[in-house]
Simulated assay, not measured.
Amino acid sequence: MEPIKTLDALACPLPRANVDTDQLIPARFMKEPRSVGYGQFLLHDLRHDESGRPIEGFILNHPEAAQAKTLVARRNFGAGSSREAAVYALVDYGFRCVIAPSFGDIFASNSVNNGLLPATVSEEDAETLLAALGEAPGSLHIDLEAQRISVGDLSVAFSIASTWRTKLLNGWDDIDMTRQHARAIQRFADEYSRQHPWLNVTVPAGKIISRG
């Protein structure tokens, strides 16, 4: 995954609470292979009317929305089912960060595993950021190392689990997180082998050991 240290890009305000995974990507689109690009399905039923035409005024239909890297929303973002495709839709659209007061637990975990930063802010700060952005995409600076979000003269803190922060800063997955302890793991294996030498018996190929 591509590491995230800072993000300087446009952010889209989405002043909605309880945006669930079925809204992020309706189930009928999940039969499509990801190779088609799930970004086109992101918030599809909020972006389009019943005839499939884009709804004027919806933030993702703004001409500059395609350049945005951050989405700012209200509480309980990503609630609902555990579908990882909801994160795929955000990432394929181009988002690297979602800012909200709270997230669905599984959604947040899936986000980190796909290089998407779930930045948790207070409800007050979420409203302040939404007000600062207004009704159009606006510039936002995110510093993951300092855990700060800035827009103009406004600066607010955000929280994220330390393990998730490490993964995103380095672009690591779960295997990479284990590899950082490779020396300690090897030391343990060597010491365990020394204490239990009978575990190190090498059986010649083709030989069957009888258990009596």
Results as ranks from 00 to 15, higher is better:
residue 193 S to L: 00
residue 96 R to W: 07
residue 12 C to Y: 13
residue 205 A to H: 11
residue 202 T to K: 06
residue 123 E to S: 12
residue 42 L to A: 08
residue 31 K to A: 12
residue 182 A to E: 10
residue 152 G to I: 08
residue 36 V to M: 02
residue 68 A to W: 15
residue 92 D to Q: 08
residue 11 A to Q: 08
residue 13 P to W: 03
residue 171 G to V: 09
residue 20 D to L: 03
residue 9 A to E: 13
residue 185 I to F: 15
residue 139 S to P: 08
residue 137 P to L: 10
residue 145 E to R: 12
residue 24 L to C: 04
residue 184 A to R: 11
residue 60 L to H: 14
residue 8 D to E: 15
residue 120 T to D: 04
residue 164 W to S: 04
residue 79 A to Y: 05
residue 183 R to C: 02
residue 97 C to Y: 00
residue 150 S to W: 06
residue 134 G to T: 13
residue 82 S to I: 08
residue 8 D to P: 07
residue 92 D to N: 07
residue 7 L to I: 15
residue 28 R to K: 15
residue 70 T to V: 15
residue 29 F to N: 04
residue 100 A to C: 01
residue 154 L to M: 14
residue 15 P to R: 12
residue 14 L to V: 12
residue 22 D to A: 00
residue 83 R to E: 02
residue 34 R to E: 05
residue 39 G to W: 00
residue 88 Y to L: 10
residue 23 Q to G: 04
residue 193 S to I: 03
residue 15 P to Q: 12
residue 112 V to C: 12
residue 52 G to N: 09
residue 168 L to P: 03
residue 55 I to F: 13
residue 211 R to K: 15
residue 212 G to V: 05
residue 175 I to C: 08
residue 97 C to G: 00
residue 60 L to G: 11
residue 211 R to T: 08
residue 101 P to T: 04
residue 101 P to E: 07
residue 89 A to M: 06
residue 182 A to Q: 14
residue 164 W to K: 02
residue 191 E to D: 14
residue 204 P to R: 01
residue 59 I to W: 05
residue 123 E to Q: 00
residue 102 S to Y: 06
residue 62 H to V: 01
residue 16 R to T: 02
residue 79 A to M: 08
residue 59 I to T: 14
residue 70 T to K: 05
residue 33 P to Y: 03
residue 69 K to S: 13
residue 156 V to Y: 03
residue 138 G to S: 12
residue 102 S to M: 01
residue 94 G to N: 07
residue 111 S to R: 03
residue 99 I to V: 08
residue 190 D to P: 06
residue 102 S to K: 01
residue 175 I to S: 11
residue 39 G to E: 01
residue 138 G to D: 13
residue 70 T to D: 12
residue 151 V to K: 01
residue 209 I to E: 15
residue 54 P to H: 07
residue 182 A to N: 03
residue 70 T to M: 12
residue 45 D to Y: 06
residue 132 A to P: 13
residue 70 T to L: 11
residue 11 A to R: 06
residue 45 D to E: 12
residue 105 D to E: 10
residue 72 V to W: 02
residue 14 L to P: 14
residue 32 E to V: 00
residue 71 L to K: 00
residue 99 I to Y: 02
residue 100 A to T: 00
residue 160 I to N: 06
residue 192 Y to A: 12
residue 79 A to V: 11
residue 60 L to D: 14
residue 168 L to Y: 04
residue 38 Y to M: 03
residue 114 N to K: 14
residue 148 R to D: 01
residue 93 Y to H: 10
residue 74 R to M: 15
residue 125 D to P: 05
residue 29 F to M: 06
residue 8 D to W: 11
residue 77 F to Q: 02
residue 25 I to Y: 07
residue 195 Q to G: 14
residue 208 I to T: 14
residue 182 A to K: 13
residue 28 R to M: 10
residue 151 V to G: 02
residue 122 S to Q: 14
residue 144 L to D: 06
residue 185 I to R: 11
residue 211 R to V: 04
residue 114 N to F: 09
residue 56 E to S: 11
residue 198 W to D: 04
residue 149 I to N: 04
residue 135 E to R: 14
residue 100 A to E: 01
residue 162 S to F: 06
residue 95 F to H: 00
residue 53 R to K: 14
